Amino acid sequence: ASLTAYADNMLDKDYIVREIWSDCWNGKGDDGLIFPEASYKHHILTEWVNDNYGDDNYDWSKVGQLNYNFKDYYDELTGDWNFNDDRDGNWTIITDETTYHFNLQNGKWLMSDDNGNVIDSFMPFSTLTEDTAEENRNSVITDDGKCTAHRVGENLKIEEDTTVGVSEEATKPTSAEKSSNGLIYEIGGIILAGIAVLAEFLIKKKRG
């Protein structure tokens, strides 16, 4: 009944998901077939929209308000969760009761607890683009649990080594510079010798 009453003004479900997701995820690249984070969080959002679409408790004609509604739900759902990324392809959710693990099997991500019980499953969802594919390898994922997942540029050691290498090379004179410097010193020596001879000649002339 609620769905019928609001049908004329309700936004499309896919549009709602896209708009909330773009604000929530912030454009970080995540390969859905390797890392489960984006897939699971997109799954949470999609399930929330599907389960509540048309409910009188929400205004389905205003995506901005729905964005706030979903974030309230997400914060309450994940408030006691600790998202953990070991930077080696393993992403887990640690709670007081258990640790949830994710494994890709038969084209689906399976979410299991410490006892091996599968408590949820969902399809891979990739946010990886060509621009972020290489960047992904030398970056750290930080997650504050507030429906955000920002990527922070990292790999300081690589940057430091690169900077040192460039600096050392930059300080080494090239063969052309060496030749140029040698020529300058040679010309300078000739000029000084000429000045000394001229000075000696003038002194002798003055004495004579």
Rank of each mutant, 00 (worst) to 15 (best):
F125M: 09
K28L: 07
K204N: 09
D12H: 07
W81H: 04
W81T: 02
T78S: 12
E186L: 12
G89M: 02
D72P: 06
F70E: 09
D131P: 02
E47Q: 09
S167R: 08
D30Y: 01
D59G: 03
T171Q: 13
V49G: 10
D143R: 00
A170H: 01
L202S: 02
Y58I: 13
D75I: 11
G145D: 14
T99F: 14
I93H: 01
K178M: 04
S175I: 11
K206E: 03
E130N: 08
V118S: 04
G208A: 15
N115S: 10
W48K: 01
E186K: 05
L45F: 02
F70H: 11
A7V: 15
C24Y: 05
I44L: 08
I184L: 04
L33V: 02
I141V: 07
K108Q: 13
G189I: 14
E160K: 10
G194K: 14
E154T: 13
Y74G: 02
N106M: 02
L202W: 06
I44A: 03
F70V: 12
T92G: 06
N67K: 14
K206H: 02
F122M: 15
A1G: 13
T129Y: 08
T46E: 15
F122W: 11
N115P: 06
W48T: 14
I203E: 07
V118N: 02
A149G: 10
P173N: 05
R207T: 10
A170C: 04
H42C: 02
D14F: 05
Y58D: 10
N115R: 14
Y58F: 15
R18T: 00
K206L: 10
L202A: 05
F70M: 15
D51S: 05
D75E: 11
N155A: 10
A176M: 08
T92H: 00
D96Q: 06
E177M: 10
G32K: 04
E76S: 01
D88E: 05
L3D: 14
G208D: 10
L198P: 12
F201N: 00
Y185T: 09
S112A: 15
E160M: 13
N50E: 09
